[in-house]
Amino acid sequence: YDEVAAQGEVVRKLKAEKSPKAKINEAVECLLSLKAQYKEKTGKEYIPGQPP
């Protein structure tokens, strides 16, 4: 859960800094992968601010 939240912060920071699109896309792919792992382990969708 904490990893997903941390990666979400990374994506937000990159977007706020107007980073190159390729770098943002890479961070988003990582975030989506973490969300998929979270769902696989818990059986639930990741919802920000609602730990399992």
Rank of each mutant, 00 (worst) to 15 (best):
K41H: 11
Q7W: 00
K35R: 09
K35W: 00
V11K: 01
K18F: 04
L31K: 03
V28A: 10
A27K: 03
L14W: 01
K39R: 10
E29G: 08
E26T: 06
I24F: 04
Y1M: 14
Q50I: 09
A6V: 03
G49P: 12
K35C: 04
K18A: 08
Y38Q: 05
K18G: 12
D2A: 03
A22C: 10
L31A: 09
K13P: 02
I47W: 01
K35Q: 06
E45A: 08
K39T: 05
Q37Y: 05
K15D: 06
N25W: 03
A5I: 04
V10Y: 08
Y38M: 03
S33W: 06
L31C: 02
K41R: 12
P51R: 05
V4C: 13
K39D: 02
Y46N: 02
E29V: 01
I24Y: 12
E40Y: 05
I24L: 09
L32A: 14
E9T: 04
Q7Y: 00
K18W: 00
K13Y: 02
Q7N: 01
G43V: 01
N25H: 08
A16W: 08
K23R: 01
K39Q: 09
Q37M: 09
A27M: 02
G8I: 12
V28G: 06
C30I: 09
K21I: 11
E17K: 10
E40W: 04
V10G: 02
Q50V: 12
A22N: 13
G49S: 11
E40M: 08
K15V: 09
P20L: 05
Y46G: 03
E9I: 05
K44C: 00
E29I: 04
N25F: 06
L31F: 15
D2H: 15
Y1I: 14
S33V: 10
I47H: 10
V10W: 05
E40T: 07
G49E: 14
Q7V: 00
A6T: 15
A27F: 00
K39M: 07
E3C: 12
Q50D: 08
P20T: 13
D2Y: 13
A27I: 00
C30K: 15
L32E: 14
A5G: 01
V4A: 00
G49R: 09
T42D: 02
V28F: 03
G8T: 14
E45N: 08
A5F: 12
P48S: 12
E45F: 01
Q37H: 05
A36R: 13
A16K: 10
G43R: 04
E45D: 13
P51A: 08
G49N: 14
V28W: 05
S33Y: 07
E9H: 08
A22G: 11
K18M: 12
R12S: 06
E17D: 07
E29H: 10
A27R: 02
G43S: 04
K41A: 12
A6W: 04
G8C: 06
K15I: 06
P48G: 10
A6E: 13
Q37D: 13
Y38R: 03
V4S: 00
A6H: 10
E3F: 04
L32M: 14
I47C: 13
L34V: 02
E9S: 12
K21Q: 09
R12N: 06
Q37S: 13
K35E: 08
Q37I: 10
C30Y: 12
K13E: 01
G49L: 10
A6G: 05
Q7D: 00
L31D: 10
K23Q: 14
G8M: 15
K15W: 08
A6M: 14
L34P: 07
Q50Y: 14
G8H: 15
L32K: 14
L32N: 14
V11R: 02
P20W: 01
R12W: 03
G43T: 05
A36S: 12
E29M: 07
T42A: 08
E40V: 06
A22K: 13
L31Y: 14
E45G: 03
S33L: 11
K15N: 06
A22F: 11
A22Y: 07
K39N: 08
K13M: 09
I24D: 07
K35F: 00
S33Q: 14
S33H: 12
P51W: 06
A27Q: 05
V28C: 06
Y38F: 09
V28H: 13
K13T: 02
R12K: 12
G8D: 15
Q50N: 08
E40C: 07
E45T: 08
N25G: 08
K13A: 01
C30N: 07
I24P: 03
L32Y: 11
G43M: 04
E17C: 07
S19Y: 04
E17M: 15
I47M: 11
S33T: 13
G8Q: 15
L34S: 07
P48D: 15
K41Q: 12
K41L: 09
A36E: 09
I47Y: 07
Q50S: 12
E17A: 14
G49K: 14
E9V: 14
S19F: 11
I24Q: 06
S33A: 13
E40H: 09
D2C: 13
L34M: 10
T42M: 12
Y46A: 05
K18Q: 08
K15P: 02
V10A: 15
V11N: 01
V10F: 12
E26P: 03
A6F: 02
N25Q: 10
I24H: 01
S33D: 15
E17L: 11
E29T: 10
S33M: 11
Y1T: 01
K41S: 12
Q37W: 00
E40L: 07
P51K: 11
K18S: 09
P20M: 05
G8S: 15
K21S: 11
A16N: 11
E26H: 07
A36C: 06
A22E: 14
E26L: 06
A5E: 13
Q50K: 13
G43Q: 04
G49I: 09
Q50C: 12
E3M: 15
E17P: 01
V11Q: 00
Y38K: 06
E26W: 01
A27H: 01
E9K: 07
P48T: 10
K41C: 09
G43D: 08
A22T: 10
C30V: 12
Q37V: 05
P48R: 07
L32W: 07
L31Q: 09
K41W: 06
P48H: 10
A36T: 11
V4G: 00
E9P: 03
S33R: 13
N25E: 12
Y38W: 02
D2W: 14
P52V: 02
L14G: 05
K35D: 03
Y1N: 04
Q7F: 00
L14P: 00
K39A: 09
Y1V: 11
E26G: 03
I24S: 06
P20E: 13
Y46M: 04
P51L: 13
L14T: 07
C30S: 13
E17V: 07
Y1R: 02
K21E: 12
V11C: 02
E29K: 14
Q7R: 00
Y1C: 01
P52G: 03
E3V: 05
I47K: 11
V28P: 05
Y46Q: 05
K41N: 10
G49F: 10
Q50E: 15
P48C: 05
A36Y: 05
L34I: 03
P51T: 06
G43N: 08
K18V: 02
V11A: 07
G8P: 05
Q50P: 08
L32H: 15
K41Y: 04
Y1A: 00
E29L: 05
K18R: 09
A27V: 00
E45C: 06
T42V: 07
V11E: 04
K21D: 11
K13I: 03
R12C: 03
E26S: 08
A6S: 10
A16P: 02
L14K: 08
E29Y: 06
V4L: 02
N25S: 10
R12G: 09
E40R: 06
V11F: 02
E45K: 04
K13Q: 07
A16Q: 13
L31V: 02
V4W: 00
A27C: 00
I24M: 09
I47R: 11
E17G: 10
R12T: 05
A22W: 07
Y46R: 04
K13H: 03
P48L: 08
K21G: 12
D2P: 14
Y46V: 05
A16I: 07
Y46L: 04
Y38E: 02
V4P: 02
A16G: 06
A16F: 09
V4D: 01
T42G: 04
E40F: 04
A36K: 15
V10Q: 06
E9Y: 02
L31G: 07
D2N: 15
A16L: 13
C30P: 04
G8Y: 15
P48V: 07
G49W: 06
V4I: 08
P20V: 11
K41V: 12
V4E: 00
L32V: 11
S33F: 11
D2K: 15
A22L: 09
E9W: 05
L34D: 09
P52W: 07
G43C: 03
K41F: 08
A5C: 12
I47L: 11
K21W: 04
K21T: 12
E3N: 14
E45W: 00
T42Q: 10
G43K: 11
E9N: 11
A36W: 02
Y38D: 05
K13W: 01
A22S: 12
K44A: 00
A36F: 04
A6L: 15
Q50A: 11
Q50G: 11
Y38I: 01
P51Q: 08
C30T: 13
V10L: 15
Q7T: 11
A27P: 03
K13D: 03
K44N: 15
K15M: 13
A5D: 07
P51V: 11
N25T: 13
K35G: 02
G8W: 15
A16H: 11
C30L: 14
A22V: 06
P20D: 15
E9A: 15
Q7H: 01
K41G: 05
L34K: 10
I24W: 01
V10H: 13
Y1G: 00
V10R: 13
A36H: 13
A27E: 07
Q7I: 00
S33C: 06
Q50M: 11
G49C: 10
K13G: 02
V4F: 02
P52D: 06
L14H: 05
A6D: 02
K21R: 13
V28M: 14
A27L: 00
E29W: 00
A6I: 10
I24K: 04
Y46W: 13
V28R: 09
A16S: 11
T42I: 03
L14Y: 06
A5S: 09
K23P: 00
D2E: 10
A36Q: 13
L32C: 14
L34F: 03
S19P: 08
V10D: 03
A22P: 10
S33I: 08
G49Y: 07
I24A: 03
E26D: 11
P52T: 15
K44L: 00
K23S: 00
V28K: 12
P51M: 09
G43E: 06
L14F: 09
